[in-house]
Design a protein around this nucleic acid. Structure first.
Lengths: 135, 135
DNA sequence: TACTTACCTACTGTGTCAATAGGTAATTAG
DNA sequence: CTAATTACCTATTGACACAGTAGGTAAGTA
């Protein structure tokens, strides 16, 4: 289940794309437009900065800005950064996961097939796909 | 992320299918074969009975049994029963969920598309698809 | 009657989710 | 230089789910 972290991050990205005017956009504005607690968004946006999705600038005139064009962002990279993984099961999500039944596991192929489908779905979609053009 | 409830339930179903000999199979045997705590399985299996996936019988010679042929079970129905929902977001999972942004939500179509894809994937797969034929 | 098996209630430790609270550091406008 | 603005930081909280464990009761068979 996609949590608010991923969903809010997506909305922040969309808000930044839709309200882009070349300068930085304060979080206060985003929070008000989106109807999300600014305090909570701070945590989310912080991770988006450290994850390289957006850039932040302190001080007056500061705020946040996309660092790529909306069509360059894949929805998958946004969700994966915020959710940690898009994998359906622990044995595929954790890199160092060990399972002594792995070789004989009869469900693993299905989970792999599922994971690939999910990955493809979200990596085919771009941030720009979510924004109405007639704006 | 699919939890142990769903994954273990799947393994119990497969175990029942593979070891079917017409009579009831004790949980003890299943737990040993699968390497899962019997105590924990009790909780899971209880819900599988009340959900109508399998039938249980008490007393000596008791245990559990499938109530349909393996090819009649859809993986989706098993997972959905155990996980509560397969939906990706709360606004689609909860029936009584209200969101005042629903009408203007720009991500909802994507979530709906995703949910449909996931649903189709797991409802196309049958329990029998997971069992090797050369057994 | 003894044995086996499902079924029931209760509890626990760990972790995540979704925030809230109260600060500090950086930057700019006046 | 000062005040205002803004990002950024640490800590805490309550609720809840996850993954079990523990110990008992009811049901059915040999």
């Amino acid at each position: 289940m996609i949590s608010t972290r991923g969903r809010y991050a997506l909305r922040v990205m969309m808000d930044l794309a839709e309200n882009d005017n070349g300068s930085f956009i304060p979080l206060k504005d985003i929070a008000e437009r989106q109807g999300i607690s600014k305090k909570y968004l701070e945590i989310i946006v912080k991770d988006m900065v450290s994850g390289g999705l957006i850039v932040g600038a302190s001080g007056k005139g500061g705020g946040y800005k996309l660092c790529k064009k909306p069509e360059k962002y894949k929805i998958g990279e946004i969700l994966e950064l915020m959710e940690g993984t898009l994998s359906s099961v622990a044995c595929l999500a954790d890199k160092g996961f060990t399972c002594d039944r792995r070789s004989q596991c009869q469900t693993l192929p299905m989970w792999k097939e599922y994971d690939k489908m999910v990955h493809d779905f979200f990596y085919k979609k771009k941030l720009s796909d979510l924004i109405p053009k007639d704006k």
